[in-house]
Structures are given as C-alpha cells and as structure tokens.
Amino acid sequence: MEDTNRDFSSSQNPFQTMPRFSGKTVIITGSSNGIGRSAALLFAQDGANVTITGRNAERLEETRKLILKSGVSESHLNSVVADVTTSGGQDLLVKSTLDKFGKIHILVNNAGAGIPDATGATGTDQSIDVYHKTLQLNLQAVIEMTKKVKPHLMETKGEIINISSVAGQPRAQPDFMYYAIAKAALDQYTRSTAIDLIQYGIRVNSVSPGLVATGFVNAMGMPDAATQKLCDFMSSHKECIPALVAGQPEDIANIILFLADRKLSSYIIGQSIIADGGSTLVMGMQAHSFLDILKS
C-alpha cells in the first residue's frame, strides 16, 4: 500500500531543486549601484559566489550590506574597490576572485557611463578627451576584462554578458555621440567575440537597456530632481516609451541571469536582447493615433 505519510519537506523533497547558480562564480563590474547592484543581489540569492566592484567604496558597501541582509553568507561575497579602466584594477578583480572562490564561471561587463564634457559641450563640440575616456570605460575595459578572464572561462565553459545600450542602435544620438559610438562598437565586439569564443565553449551575449531608473543620469551631472523629471517625461510620452513606464534595474538584471543560465539560453549566441519598453520600435508618425489627428 502506498505510504501517504511521507515527508516531502526540506532536503527529502524530490521536487526541490538546488539554486541554479550554486557553485558558480560571477564577476560583475560596476556593481555598486543600479543594474549591477540588482544583478549581484539576484545572482547571490540564486546561489552564486559573487565579486562586486566599483570605484565608490561607500556605494559598494551599500551593495554588500544589501546582499548580506538578504540572507547570503559572507563566504559567498567578494567586495573589491577597484577602477576597471586600469590594468591594476582588472588584475585585482581576477586575482581576488580566484583567491577566494577558485574559479570564474560568469563575467558581467556592466561598468559604463556617459561621460559629460566639463564645459557642458555636447555633440561635435565635445572634447577628444571625453571621447577617449568614454571609449576607455565603455569598450576598452570590456575588451581587457574579456582577455584576462578568457583562460578561466575556457576551463569552466563559462558565460560573458555585456551591458550595452539602445544608444548603440542605428539611430542618431547627436547629443552624446561618443557614448553611442562606444555602445555600437560594443555590440560588434559582442558578435565577434561570440563566434571567436564559442569554439572554447564560452558563450557571449549582451543586453541593451533603454531608459532605466538608475544613477546613470546622475553620473552625467544631473541632480536627483532633474533625473526624476526626465524619467517622468519619457515615461508619460508614448513616442518615447510605448510601455509608458521607465525600466527598473531588476528588469535588466533578470535578463542578465537568463543569459547566464545555460539551461535556459544555451542556443543564444552573440545576440543582444533589447529591453526598452518598445522605444526602438516607434517612429514619430507612429506615436500618435491617426484617428485622433483626423478628429482634431
């Protein structure tokens, strides 16, 4: 006769699964706030060993405390104050991760920013120095981190997820063209490295967010009030965001985890998932109802 009194709780539950990133180690650059912070939290909660990093020690500590407060053990967390645009900072990230966790399975190249011109110039009036700094952070640092982590990902058959932007899509970005140039180049780098590295079992993909409510705009010199005003305007105009809502960091973080999960996304190679509430799908003439125009 069937035993109906079996205990299906705790470890005896045959339907219970291990956290999907248990035993995996991930490095997330730019994880002191925004998308990187959210991704670090989700990875850690899903069993991963996580190296978080950023230049701002205070904000990085906020990320560390947030993860620990969620119930994650200190033994699963490696916090490193470092500048990912420097060779020393990159080497510290890789070495400290290996020293604490032994292996590297996932690299999330999230660090990036639109760097403002000190004079307030935009477009073609921006200085060449801004161009160099923008590409160094948004492109060159990704290239250098990829090269340094490659041998370790070859060993683990790992994953690389780059964080690009809809600014890199084939639409003009006249105000902050250097940032757009860097992200367009990053998209091509993602495609090319994906084909180069898949022979070693390494998958490379990327995410291209649209407007997301993070500290991105603040980093360009805008105060909180101005940042909120921009988000409110964009999310209330369907020609800007058809979904009429600004993205949240966890919206993008969930896509990062999807691309890092080989069971779920194994056949996706060298692609960029656009997450923008529909922004890149509309033209100005499509953003308004023809019927409303005819009735007016």
Rank of each mutant, 00 (worst) to 15 (best):
residue 174 P to N: 02
residue 184 A to M: 05
residue 205 N to L: 06
residue 143 I to Q: 07
residue 184 A to T: 03
residue 135 L to P: 04
residue 202 I to D: 03
residue 135 L to R: 00
residue 185 A to Q: 05
residue 186 L to S: 06
residue 161 I to Q: 04
residue 191 R to K: 12
residue 180 A to D: 06
residue 138 N to W: 01
residue 178 Y to S: 00
residue 179 Y to M: 02
residue 196 D to I: 04
residue 154 M to L: 12
residue 153 L to Y: 00
residue 166 V to C: 12
residue 140 Q to Y: 15
residue 161 I to E: 07
residue 214 T to I: 08
residue 175 D to S: 14
residue 160 I to L: 01
residue 133 K to V: 00
residue 156 T to C: 10
residue 137 L to R: 01
residue 203 R to T: 08
residue 168 G to I: 01
residue 201 G to D: 09
residue 207 V to L: 15
residue 154 M to P: 13
residue 213 A to D: 01
residue 156 T to A: 12
residue 171 R to T: 15
residue 165 S to L: 05
residue 143 I to P: 03
residue 204 V to M: 02
residue 192 S to C: 09
residue 189 Y to E: 11
residue 203 R to W: 03
residue 195 I to C: 02
residue 158 G to N: 07
residue 195 I to M: 12
residue 136 Q to E: 15
residue 130 V to P: 03
residue 196 D to T: 11
residue 178 Y to P: 00
residue 172 A to W: 04
residue 182 A to K: 09
residue 132 H to C: 07
residue 188 Q to C: 01
residue 211 L to M: 12
residue 160 I to M: 00
residue 196 D to A: 13
residue 132 H to F: 03
residue 134 T to G: 06
residue 138 N to F: 13
residue 187 D to A: 08
residue 201 G to Y: 13
residue 187 D to K: 04
residue 155 E to Y: 13
residue 209 P to T: 13
residue 202 I to V: 11
residue 209 P to F: 14
residue 201 G to M: 10
residue 165 S to D: 08
residue 140 Q to A: 09
residue 147 K to V: 04
residue 206 S to L: 12
residue 144 E to K: 15
residue 144 E to M: 09
residue 184 A to G: 15
residue 212 V to F: 01
residue 198 I to C: 08
residue 161 I to T: 14
residue 155 E to Q: 14
residue 141 A to M: 07
residue 145 M to L: 14
residue 145 M to E: 09
residue 158 G to K: 04
residue 151 P to K: 09
residue 162 N to K: 10
residue 129 D to L: 10
residue 191 R to G: 02
residue 210 G to S: 10
residue 128 I to H: 04
residue 191 R to S: 05
residue 176 F to L: 04
residue 157 K to H: 12
residue 214 T to Q: 06
residue 181 I to V: 11
residue 195 I to G: 08
residue 164 S to D: 12
residue 180 A to E: 11
residue 212 V to G: 12
residue 141 A to G: 12
residue 186 L to C: 14
residue 181 I to T: 11
residue 177 M to D: 02
residue 191 R to W: 03
residue 196 D to K: 03
residue 129 D to F: 02
residue 198 I to W: 08
residue 167 A to H: 07
residue 190 T to L: 06
residue 195 I to K: 12
residue 183 K to C: 04
residue 205 N to S: 10
residue 174 P to F: 01
residue 147 K to L: 07
residue 176 F to P: 00
residue 207 V to D: 15
residue 198 I to D: 00
residue 195 I to L: 13
residue 128 I to P: 00
residue 183 K to L: 07
residue 129 D to Q: 15
residue 153 L to H: 05
residue 141 A to D: 05
residue 187 D to E: 15
residue 154 M to I: 14
residue 141 A to Y: 11
residue 193 T to P: 01
residue 138 N to D: 09
residue 202 I to M: 03
residue 211 L to Y: 09
residue 187 D to T: 07
residue 209 P to M: 11
residue 156 T to Y: 13
residue 139 L to H: 13
residue 128 I to N: 06
residue 135 L to E: 03
residue 194 A to R: 00
residue 178 Y to F: 05
residue 182 A to S: 13
residue 178 Y to V: 00
residue 200 Y to N: 14
residue 163 I to Y: 09
residue 173 Q to W: 01
residue 189 Y to D: 11
residue 201 G to P: 06
residue 159 E to T: 13
residue 194 A to G: 10
residue 158 G to D: 11
residue 184 A to C: 06
residue 210 G to H: 05
residue 161 I to F: 04
residue 155 E to M: 11
residue 182 A to T: 06
residue 215 G to L: 10
residue 194 A to E: 11
residue 129 D to P: 06
residue 214 T to C: 08
